[in-house]
Each structure stands twice: as structure tokens, then as C-alpha cells.
């Protein structure tokens, strides 16, 4: 039990320190999110638009720039969370296999990876909520923060999955950027006013986008929609863990019996 806990905390600590040493990821997290919110604030009209929010089953009238800022913040969080998690998973997968072959306990390794995704998403959400709170009159900061964390978790899970699956780094970046662009574009009610595109609710950001917009711009808090993104996080996270598990090194029956470890 002690080894399991130490193996979990040590790998989590190393992974988080590795994130901190990833200068590009840090620069993206620190600069890209406020920049993207500022671009949305400056480049979108203050004209009032009427948007449909499924989560509260009503239409609301709000300045377009406020909607754009919340949508941009969600997009930025998804991209940074996806990028950071994908890079870490992709770059460490050979070493992870070597550690497993050497006898590193599997469950703590998998849990440390999930915990790193969750912590990264939580930190990004906290930072982005503060930025939005400074930039906007936010009705409910806590559910907004949870919605942003949900977005980070969903794309963190996708980053984890792609990092374990794709062959090239460029493929992974391309898939994360494209999925995030399509998803944020479809969920942005300024572009997609009626939200009546078939299948829009099946995308990872649908639930958190509804929760974020409602919490930030209306007095309502549709908690249940936030849970939808957890389905995405859970599904992508579980698939990623399954891939990590099935890519385990092989052991012959004899080596299993004698507890062989190779480094």
C-alpha cells in the first residue's frame, strides 16, 4: 500500500514538474488564454444579440462580445489542456513502457496520469475564471470555473488518448486543434444562433459551454449540463487508460512466475 501511494505521488510530482519545465506549454497557458479573451473582447461588437440557451430552455439578450469572451476562454482552455496532456503522454510513452517492464506498479501510474490531467484542468480553469471575472460582469464564478475545468478535463482526456494512440506528434496536434476549432465554432451561439445543427450536443464542449454561458451571463445555473462533459472526460480517460494498459510489455509464463523485471 505504501509503495502504491509513493509510486503514485512520485510520478504525479515528476509529471507536474515536467509540465512546469515545458516552456511552450507554460507560455501558452499564461499568455494565450488572456490574449484570446482580449481578442474576443476587442474584435467582437458590443451590439446585443439574442441567443438560445438549451440549458435554461430560453433565449437571452446579451452583448455579443461577452458571449465571444466566454466562448473564446473555453476554446483556449481546451486547446492548452489538450496540448499539454498530449505532449506529456506522447513524449513519455516509451519511458512509461520501460518503467512498467521494470516492474513499476501499473495502477498508480495510470492514476497519476489522470490526476495530472485533473490538476492541470483545475489550474487552467482557476486562472481563466479570474481573467473572465476581471473582464466581464460574471453572475456565478464557481459554476463558470467548474465548466472551464470540465472543458479542460474533456480535452485533457482526449490529449491523453491521442498521446497513447497516434504515431506522430504533428498528427496529434492537428487532431486536437481541429476538434477544438470545430467544437468551439459549433458551440458559439454568436455563430450558431439557434444551436439547431444536428449532433451539436454530442460534441465534448456542449454541456460545459451551456453551463459556462448560463453561469456567466444569466442568473441561472444548469448544473446537469456540466455533467455531460464529465461523460466525455470519463470516456476518453477510460479509453486512454485501456490503451496504456493494452500496450503493456509482454511477459513469458516463466518470467511471470519468477517475477522478472527488466529495465
Amino acid at each position: 500500500m505504501r509503495l502504491t501511494w509513493t509510486a503514485f505521488t512520485e510520478l504525479l510530482r515528476c509529471t507536474l514538474l515536467g509540465h512546469l519545465r515545458n516552456r511552450l506549454a507554460l507560455a501558452l497557458a499564461v499568455a494565450f488564454i488572456p490574449l484570446w479573451i482580449a481578442v474576443a473582447r476587442l474584435c467582437t461588437s458590443d451590439a446585443v444579440v439574442r441567443i438560445r440557451l438549451d440549458a435554461i430552455s430560453a433565449s437571452v439578450s446579451v452583448p455579443a462580445s461577452r458571449v465571444a469572451q466566454v466562448a473564446s476562454a473555453l476554446g483556449a482552455v481546451t486547446m492548452v489542456a489538450g496540448f499539454v496532456t498530449f505532449t506529456e503522454t506522447f513524449q513519455s510513452r516509451q519511458m512509461d513502457r520501460r518503467l512498467l517492464l521494470a516492474g513499476y506498479p501499473r495502477l498508480p501510474m495510470l492514476l497519476a496520469k489522470l490526476a495530472a490531467v485533473a490538476l492541470t484542468a483545475a489550474l487552467l480553469a482557476l486562472y481563466t475564471t479570474i481573467l473572465l471575472w476581471i473582464s466581464l460582469p460574471v453572475h456565478h464564478a464557481v459554476p463558470l470555473g467548474l465548466a472551464l475545468a470540465g472543458a479542460g478535463l474533456a480535452y485533457g482526456g482526449i490529449g491523453l488518448l491521442l498521446g497513447s494512440l497516434v504515431r506522430g506528434e504533428l498528427e496529434g496536434f492537428f487532431l486536437i486543434i481541429m476538434l477544438s476549432l470545430v467544437d468551439t465554432g459549433l458551440q458559439n451561439p454568436v455563430f450558431n444562433t439557434l444551436m439547431d445543427v444536428a449532433g451539436v450536443s454530442a460534441f465534448p464542449l456542449y454541456g460545459v459551454n451551456q453551463l459556462a454561458l448560463s453561469s456567466a451571463l444569466t442568473p441561472h445555473i444548469p448544473w446537469s449540463h456540466g455533467l455531460l462533459s464529465l461523460t466525455w472526460s470519463a470516456a476518453s480517460g477510460a479509453l486512454a487508460l485501456l490503451v496504456l494498459h493494452t500496450h503493456r510489455p509482454s511477459r513469458s509464463p516463466v518470467s511471470r512466475r519468477t517475477g522478472v523485471r527488466a529495465g
Binding site: V254, S255, R261, A262
Partner: peptide, 22 residues
């Protein structure tokens, strides 16, 4: 075919398998 190993194994792969961030 089969592979039988006994005792602890040390493996040094051709390309250094390490984590650059650690």
C-alpha cells in the same frame, strides 16, 4: 517460439529511452 528468462533482467535499449522533462 518461446522465451524463458530466470532472475532479474536489465535491458538497455539501443536508443536511450528516457523522459526529457525529468
Amino acid at each position: 517460439g518461446t522465451v524463458t528468462r530466470t532472475g532479474a533482467v536489465g535491458y538497455c535499449p539501443q536508443r536511450a529511452v528516457l523522459n526529457d522533462a525529468f
